[in-house]
Design a protein around this nucleic acid. Structure first.
Lengths: 345, 345
DNA sequence: TATAGTTATGACAACGTTGTCTTTTTCGAG
DNA sequence: CTCGAAAAAGACAACGTTGTCATAACTATA
């Protein structure tokens, strides 16, 4: 192996491999790319040469020639907390597994569509994965459609027909966990809703109402308080609920962080959970495990969303023509000790 | 702008710019790269042409020619929770700000050094950022040194002389928070240590001992229980501590997650925090905010570690010769309601 | 105004790969 | 054994950039 002035050994190229194997560079290229018309014997010779030289293909040259990056983009905004981290981790491992790369871009507020266009032009990613909340940004969607870039979103607010997206059936999950409260005997079930413009929030609230309806419980809007998914909104909402003349015997908070807020208020007001009031959340991340009592909640695989989205993206970018259906990922109830039957009497 | 068969407009290249500006491609190149010897008037002409055509330089061509990626690598292992997410976010935004890219690689267990070599060879990153725990993997360090790849670590166990790394002075921080407990009157202060092979754990414990020593309190090893940074280890350790004949009036848990475990045990055993026992943690992430009572803890900017590491890496890769010193980042005590003076009597 | 010394610009190759097109080889049928 | 078709292999250019070296255009000096 030749030695470079800087002391590093120069990496073997396709030319070196061709020479050693006694074939043309094009044949080596064919072997690397698993093309069909290469004789077994030739392929073997080439593979051996590759092995001997420790040849690794130069991705820049490939990308330059192909005018694509063999990578996907992940668009972010304001990443924080478990959620973003889990998605990212899922996406990363799915990419790695398939030999793709992932280019992560954090978008700032101003002139988003220009940012996206610049991102697409410079990175030449083969597809884009949009996480909430950017997955509902019209400007971004337009920019992607204008450049015919395949994309996958998580639970979009207004999915196009035949659009591919990944989601969890939050409506069903919310219905299920509310129904669980019903099934252990609760009739006055409070609800702390999530941020208003958020599809998840709407779906979870819808599931709550459906469960009540199915159980023949009349919807009482004094038991429903709006929150915005954060701890403090949960704390305040709980204050309202516990302050009612006839407070609920159970509460469904639209996510775990707000449920943690409910716990804090309960502790402050000396209300025992679950004895005096049962509590369920939604998400199933770290928070549900580190509070006391541990939360009964919906365990959704956020990591799975990341994995699913990337797999879908690979599929789409390879077979763009096929019709798509949304990919729904599994969820499951996780039982903590924040729930019990209502107090008698 | 020429139209491609697929309908996309072909991106302008340096050649188009040169033509429009009436100069050679080399001159355009010089302008793009801010080289000196270009006349003002020429530069202006070129810049205008660039603007008019919406020219963006092709990064693959550049990387191919330069045989480097203009990107940094971030090596991960088992990313989970706030910590990894915050670091990543910090690193990403620092990269973006400087026009670099970040290539994230998750390492699996087997044959790490081969994975690292493959990573370096295929991505050709200009430098590598190692997060715990991989920052203490000898194989990786060797692989990096062998290929003369600049790297920055977070709080390495055995930093080389003049090695650049980022860290928080955990010893001082731990001393400070323990001293706070002393200052509000505590004398029997328990400690739940972190994972044994972890530098952070050692430093935090050392700070604890130093504070006791400074206050003239005799170190009592029955008050020190080992944990491994996770919730359950905190729960168990608290069991031991609260079960002592003469339990501590305050506990310093080496991180917030273990402190949350202490809270759970306290709740289960009916011990009131902080009335009967004060509690402090370390980290200052989400957990410290969502438990009840909120934790008094050390607030460290994990995000800042990510930003700092990347900035350091840029500096190193641009000026490799200069001697380096570790970069210590600020921390601060954050007061929750898990602490108060000891009960009298 | 000629001349040397800068400074500014340009021509051209090279980076490593893959697409296009051409040539060679193989193999089965007659 | 020949021929033709199909399969396998090769020659060569092109992708867009930057480095090297050569040349042209400017300055300041004599």
């Amino acid at each position: 192996m030749p030695e470079l002035p800087n002391g590093k050994a120069a990496a073997a190229t396709i030319v070196d491999v061709a020479q050693l194997a006694g074939v043309s560079i094009k044949t080596v290229s064919r072997v690397i790319n698993n093309e069909v018309s290469v004789r077994q014997a030739t392929r073997a010779k080439v593979l051996e040469a590759i092995e001997r030289l420790g040849y690794k293909r130069n991705l820049f040259a490939r990308s330059l020639r192909a005018d694509k990056s063999f990578a996907f983009g992940l668009l972010y905004e304001n990443p924080q907390g478990d959620y973003s981290a889990d998605i990212l981790h899922g996406a990363l491992s799915a990419c790695q597994e398939a030999g793709y790369h992932l280019v992560v871009e954090i978008l700032s507020d101003d002139d988003i569509s220009k940012q996206v266009e610049r991102f697409l032009a410079t990175t030449k990613v083969d597809g884009v994965f949009l996480t909430p909340p950017v997955c509902d940004d019209e400007e971004i969607i337009n920019a992607l459609e204008r450049t015919a870039t395949p994309f996958v979103r998580i639970s979009p607010l207004n999915p196009a027909e035949q659009e591919a997206y990944v989601a969890i059936n939050e409506f069903e999950a919310a219905r299920e966990i509310t129904n669980y409260l019903v099934s252990i005997g609760h009739k006055r079930i409070g609800h702390i809703a999530g941020a208003e413009n958020h599809l998840s929030a709407m779906e979870r609230s819808r599931g709550y109402r459906k469960a009540l309806n199915d159980a023949g419980i009349i919807y009482d809007d004094s038991l429903v308080v709006s929150g915005n998914f954060d701890f403090d909104s949960g704390r305040l909402a709980a204050h309202d609920l516990f302050g009612l003349d006839s407070p609920p015997t159970a509460i469904f908070a639209a996510n775990d962080e707000m449920a943690a807020g409910v716990l804090a208020t309960a502790h402050e007001m000396g209300i025992q959970i679950p004895l005096e009031c049962s509590l369920v959340g939604f998400d199933g991340g770290t928070i549900s495990e580190v509070v006391w009592p541990k939360l009964t909640t919906i365990n959704q695989s956020v990591r799975g969303l990341g994995v699913g989205a990337i797999r879908l993206l690979m599929d789409i970018s390879e077979n763009p023509e096929i019709e798509r259906e949304p990919l729904f990922l599994p969820y499951a109830m996780k039982f903590g000790s924040s729930t019990s039957g209502p107090q008698v009497g």
